[in-house]
């Protein structure tokens, strides 16, 4: 217990050391998460457009195409 709190104290510099680590891992984590999420979103979009049910999705997206073929 004592060693843990001593470790966390960082020789009295806890207010400087831990925010540094927090900022680094926090910001890099957010960047990683955003990049992963963006990639997932793009892949889902593509799968929807290219997948086996792509034709159906296309119809839904453009109902005007069926109604007015010659425009």
């Amino acid at each position: 217990m004592d060693t843990i709190s001593k470790f966390l104290e960082m020789g009295g510099y806890a207010g400087y050391v831990w925010p540094s680590y927090l900022a680094v891992f926090g910001l890099l984590g957010v960047l990683l998460w955003l990049s992963l999420r963006g990639l997932k979103a793009a892949e889902t979009d593509l799968a929807q457009l290219e997948g086996p049910d792509g034709k159906a999705a296309r119809r839904q997206a453009s109902p005007a195409a069926d109604g007015a073929p010659d425009t």
Binding site: L32, S35, L36, G38, L39, A42, E43, D45, L46, L49, E50, R58, A61, S62, A64, A65
Partner: peptide, 23 residues
């Protein structure tokens, strides 16, 4: 990761363009 996203988004845009043309 970011490059893969960019390239995938490019393909999505191309697909959408095909749809627009078909429509």
């Amino acid at each position: 990761l970011r490059m893969r996203r960019d390239l995938t988004e490019g393909r999505v845009r191309a697909r959408r363009q095909i749809q627009a043309e078909e429509a």
